[in-house]
């Protein structure tokens, strides 16, 4: 298959790569670039585990082909905090027990990261709708929802 070149910004860094047109963004990030923080839970666009941010919007990386990222700005979970210095949203997940097995977590984080940038003061119902495209089988969602609400209100009280 003919490979295509793509140029994009990944987690703040400009990158160039050659990609096989059949490869979706999730596989490309995980297996070609070694960014295994993005997870694949269904590969048919329902579970949301694979969510990354492209040009500011949450995107299912299993439904986007890698060739489509040419010229875009891509953010993955690796762009948030590091284990020793978690972002406020990540820290709120830990505090509220918003993760158990951690498999849905990157997708939840990236969905909420994009959401909270544009919706700084959501209600509980808003947050539940925002993550209504992300499945978590472990937590029952409550800790995730609370983490988003806490992050938003902490940010509001800082500004």
């Amino acid at each position: 298959m003919t490979e295509h070149s793509v140029t994009f910004t990944l987690n703040g860094e400009r990158r160039e790569a050659r990609v096989d047109p059949r490869i979706h963004l999730g596989d490309f990030l995980r297996h070609s670039l070694g960014l295994t923080g993005t997870h694949l839970g269904c590969e048919h666009g329902v579970c949301g585990a694979c969510t990354v941010i492209v040009n500011g919007a949450p995107v299912r990386s299993c439904l986007m082909l890698a060739v489509q990222i040419d010229g875009t700005v891509v953010e993955t979970v690796e762009s948030l905090g590091k284990p020793g210095a978690l972002s406020p949203l990540q820290q709120a997940f830990a505090t509220n027990h918003g993760l158990q097995c951690g498999f849905c977590t990157s997708g939840m984080l990236m969905t909420l990261e994009a959401y909270l940038r544009t919706t700084p003061a959501p209600t509980e119902q808003d947050v539940r709708i925002a993550i209504s495209g992300n499945i978590c089988r472990c937590t029952g969602y409550e800790g995730i929802v609370q983490a988003a609400l806490d992050t938003a209100s902490a940010k509001a009280s800082r500004t």
Partner: peptide, 10 residues
Amino acid sequence: EDARLLAGKG
């Protein structure tokens, strides 16, 4: 367990 999993380092 959390810090590593949250940072995508699972």
